[in-house]
């Protein structure tokens, strides 16, 4: 019997993490976060059975100048607009949709394996402890919308800094460049 073109759906631990995080956003009553996490869970469940054939990385993604230009534009929009503006929401949405499109169009497969891999568990431990610390601080809040000054979450600590337009601009540019690194790795196909 010939092998199927697409593998069967097998739940991944990453899917469980996304579903749990989505549940936290339900508690926080944040509609956009809930919808985005739900969409991600659906894509993660469907991708193995619906993926396209692998495609090479787009050329514009391999060059730094288009992304550097986009980082400057995004930083400018974020710096000059209020933090609650529709313009910033739209800009972040466009970046997200573009990154998702590149990832989905990359098709089946994965980036080249890193080769002989030394210890990775320290990274997992630090990230896990960080997530648990954040969750613990969130759970000490009197309600999902009100911070606890004695046990602040990361956003409670960072928010006052991000009220400054220049700080937000630098953060937005850094976020986009980080996304460039992530998307290039995610969309790279071995062979």
């Amino acid at each position: 019997m010939p092998a199927p073109d697409h593998p069967r759906f097998r739940p991944s631990p990453a899917l469980g993490v996304v579903v749990l995080a989505g549940a936290v956003h339900v508690a926080r009553r944040n509609l956009v976060d809930v919808l985005v996490f739900l969409l991600a869970a659906v894509l993660m469940a469907l991708a193995p059975t619906r993926d396209r054939a692998p495609r090479p990385l787009p050329r514009w993604l391999e060059r730094p100048w288009p992304v550097a230009g986009a980082a400057v534009v995004l930083a400018t929009v974020v710096a000059l607009s209020p933090r609650t503006s529709a313009v910033v929401e739209a800009a972040l949405g466009v970046v997200g949709v573009a990154a998702l499109a590149v990832t989905l169009l990359a098709g089946r497969g994965a980036p080249a394996a890193p080769g002989r891999s030394p210890r990775t568990w320290p990274w997992a431990v630090v990230v896990l402890v960080g997530c648990l610390l954040e969750l613990a601080n969130f759970l000490t809040q009197p309600d999902p919308q009100t911070d606890n000054p004695a046990h602040p979450t990361l956003s409670a600590l960072v928010d006052p800094l991000l009220d400054d337009g220049w700080v937000r601009a630098v953060a937005a540019g850094a976020w986009l460049l980080l996304g460039w690194w992530v998307v290039r790795t995610v969309a790279e196909r071995d062979g």
Binding site: S12, A14, L15, V17, V18, V36, F37, A40, L43, M44, A47, P48, D51, L92, V95, G96, A99, L100, T103, R108, A110, W175, L178, G179, V182, V183, V186
Partner: peptide
Amino acid sequence: TRAGQLSLLLWWW
């Protein structure tokens, strides 16, 4: 894995 790729993208965004 594809789930790992999409998860990473989600957390970054």
